[in-house]
Design a protein around this nucleic acid. Structure first.
Lengths: 144, 144
DNA sequence: CCGTGTGAGTTGGTTTTTCCAACGTACTCG
DNA sequence: CGAGTACGTTGGAAAAACCAACTCACACGG
């Protein structure tokens, strides 16, 4: 049996953020959580796994761990520039969830854009600048 | 210890597509694979797990399993409309991978926006429609 | 009509991950 | 002093993933 695994950007990205809890950690950091206890509380993930995910994100340069207190030693987690560039992935998931798996309660956190109104992230097409809705993006070509 | 897990669209989306191999199966279907053996070959995933993922995607209405031959029984997998609306998620992951984890080979997946040009996702503010740059989004209120 | 091949799984057993509760450490506060 | 908080680590159980081999149903070549 020939095994002809496709090397692609999607697979490579999933290697960084594809394991359980990782993207929830990232979401939590986007939502403004900085401390370990917050991440535990708001994701609901096991502490040891979350530790592991944070270390892994750190190792890949998506997150920095900063000591903000020496006595006792306390740390904060921040997304790096690279980590923040995961925003479209989180945004696309939010969009999908909002549209197709909506709960009654709205988004748990409110962001504000510099335009003054509440920020709801959506994906836009870089070429035309238009906001993209589900169904407007199609596969163009199957490059086998 | 209070456990105040955040119910959000990201978490709900991850419940559908967050387990290992699922998004690679979806990518494969976007790339035009239809048959089980193709999915096995191109994702490299274990057959039993891939079976499980396909059943799960089917159960959630993201994929349909169609018999295209009775003797011997053979099946095809197709993304449903709902499944195709995962495109922005896959696109965002591809974009991240292309930009930051690039291999030599170009992007295997080409998406097309309805405007006609190749789709590269960027983040925009839903309210004003403007493309967002880092630092333009602030937390308005922590709704914990 | 026999042996080989293909497609789509299923099975049994091993390995790897995850999960959970409890513990440790290093403080602060009353 | 005792309780509480923050940030983990540990050990063992449970769940998930992995793998090779097997099944079934047929098709095809010799």
């Amino acid at each position: 049996m020939k095994t002809d695994v496709r090397e692609c950007s999607v697979a490579r990205t999933l290697e960084l953020v594809g394991s359980k809890w990782t993207l929830l950690v990232v979401r939590e950091l986007f939502l403004g959580s900085r401390r370990f206890e917050e991440i535990v509380r708001f994701t609901g993930g096991p502490r040891d796994i979350l530790t592991d995910r944070l270390r892994s994100l750190e190792a890949h340069g998506l997150v920095t761990r900063v000591q903000y207190e020496q006595r006792p030693p306390r740390f904060e987690y921040h997304l790096t520039e690279l980590g923040r560039s995961l925003a479209p992935i989180i945004a696309a998931m939010r969009e999908f969830g909002d549209r197709h798996l909506a709960g009654e309660d709205g988004p748990p956190l409110r962001f504000e854009h510099s335009c003054g109104s509440e920020f709801h992230p959506v994906l836009a097409c870089k070429a035309c600048g238009e906001v993209v809705r589900s169904g407007e993006v199609e596969i163009a070509e199957a490059a086998r």
